[in-house]
Nucleic acid binder design. Structure first.
Lengths: 220, 220
DNA sequence: ATTGCGACATACCAGCGGTACGTACTGATG
DNA sequence: CATCAGTACGTACCGCTGGTATGTCGCAAT
C-alpha cells in the first residue's frame, strides 16, 4: 500500500492520502474504544472518516491491520508521554516512580484502556501482540528495570521475565483503577501496593521503606 | 431457559438436556481454544456437538453467553485443582508457593491460556469479566493474600488492590511462559522473579531471601 | 386420552468482512 | 501539450455469520 514510489518530493496528492489514512485511524480509535472491535463495522469507521470502505481497503489489508494501526498510534502517544515524564528526575528510583504514576494516569483514558489493555491481546493474537509491544509501554518498563539492574540497585533478575511480571502488575492495577467505583481512592490503594512491591525489589530491602508516599489506611 | 420446573425427581429427559448442554460447552471450549471467539461460528460449535443451532439457542441466549459458560467451566476446573494443591501444606508461604507453581502449570494448557487469559477480557467486557472472576483464580490469590495478612506475615496492604496486582503479575508471567520459544527455561525465569517479588512482601524482608529455589543464572 | 411444554430442528434474514471492478485525478514523460 | 500509467478512491456484489421466528416431536402430569 501507498508505495512512496520514486517521486522525490512529497506531493500534495500524497499529503491528501496521508490525511485520509490518519482520519481512518482516528475514526478507528474512537469507534473501537466506544464499541469494541467486534461491535464496530468497517462501514461505520469509513463513514466517520467521510470516505467509503473502498478507501479503507486501499490503506489497510483488513480489519485486523486497521486495528493494529490504531493500537500502535495509541501506544506511541503514551510512550512519548511516559518518556517525557521519566526524563526529568535524575535518580533512577524517582524516574521509575514517576513513570508508574504517569502510567496509572494513562490507564484512566478509555483509548488505552480498551484498545491496548482489553482488546489487543485477543484481536492481534499473542504473537503479533508481543511483537508490537516492543515499541510500547512494556518496553518502557523493561528499560527502567534494566537501568536499575545495571546500576546494581536491584537483584540481577532475568530481565525479560521480571519486566513482564512488573508490567502485568501495573496493567492489572491500572485496569482495576479504570473500572472502580471510586477511582481516586482505588488509585491510592494501587499506588501504595505497587510502591510497596517495587520497594521489595530493592537491594537490601531492610532499609526502612520510604513512607513519604501518602499512606492510606489500608483497612476500612 | 431450562426451568427446573416442579417435577421432584430428575427425569431422564432432563438428563438428556443436561447432556447436550454439556456437549455444547465442551465443543465451545475446544473450538474457541483452537480458533478464537471471532473465528468460530455457532454452526461449527453446534455441529461438533451433533446438534443444530436451534438447540444451541435453546440453551444459551447468544454467543457471548455460551462463551461465558465455557469460560466458567474452564475456570472452575482450574480453581478446583489449585485448591487441591494448596490444601496440603500447613505453612501459609508453602501453600502460596505451591499455588503459584501450580498456576503456572495450568497456564501452559491451551484452554486456560486462550479462553481465560486471552479472550475473556475482550469478549465479556471488563464488568462481566471481573464479576466472573470472583469465582476464578483471582479469588484464590485474594484468599491466599488475606490469610497472609491476617497471619501478620506481610504488611497490612489494601487487600483488593494488592490481590489484583499480584494476580496481574502472575497472569502476565503465565502468558509469557505460554508464548515462549523455550517454555521450560522461561518458566524457571518467571518463577524465580515472582518468588523474589513475593518474598519482597514478607514482613522484615531483611531476612536473607530463601535461595533454596533453583536459581538460574539470570544472565546468559 | 388429552394436552401443555420442554427440547430441539428448519427456514430465513439483515448485516458484516472481504473482493472485483470501475473511475477520476495527478504527475511524470515524450 | 497530449498521452498515459498508476494512485486513490467509489460502487456493486458475494458468502458467511449471528440471531429470530416458527414448526415439530415426545414425554409427563392431569
Amino acid at each position: 500500500m501507498t508505495v512512496r514510489s520514486r517521486s522525490r518530493r512529497r506531493s500534495r496528492r500524497m499529503e491528501y492520502s496521508e490525511s485520509t489514512r490518519q482520519a481512518l485511524v482516528d475514526s478507528a480509535i474512537a469507534l473501537f474504544t466506544e464499541r469494541g472491535y467486534g461491535g464496530t463495522s468497517l462501514d461505520e469507521i469509513a463513514h466517520r472518516a467521510r470516505v467509503t470502505k473502498g478507501a479503507l481497503y486501499h490503506h489497510f489489508a483488513n480489519k485486523q491491520a486497521l486495528f493494529e494501526a490504531a493500537y500502535q498510534a495509541v501506544e506511541a502517544d503514551v510512550v512519548d508521554r511516559l518518556a517525557e515524564v521519566m526524563r526529568v528526575p535524575t535518580d533512577l528510583w524517582d524516574a521509575m516512580k514517576a513513570g508508574i504514576a504517569a502510567f496509572f494516569e494513562v490507564c484512566l483514558e478509555p483509548n488505552y484502556q480498551r484498545i491496548a489493555l482489553q482488546e489487543a491481546p485477543s484481536v492481534l493474537g499473542y504473537d503479533r501482540w508481543r511483537l508490537a509491544e516492543e515499541h510500547s509501554c512494556f518496553s518502557v518498563v523493561r528499560t527502567g528495570l534494566e537501568a536499575l539492574i545495571d546500576a546494581g540497585e536491584i537483584e540481577d533478575l532475568p530481565l525479560e521475565a521480571a519486566s513482564r511480571i512488573v508490567f502485568g502488575a501495573l496493567a492489572f492495577g491500572a485496569i482495576m483503577i479504570a473500572g472502580a467505583d471510586d477511582p481516586v481512592r482505588t488509585r491510592e490503594d494501587v499506588v501504595y501496593s505497587v510502591d510497596y512491591l517495587v520497594d521489595g525489589l530493592r537491594h537490601g530491602a531492610a532499609y526502612p521503606r520510604d513512607t513519604e508516599q501518602m499512606a492510606p489506611d489500608p483497612q476500612d
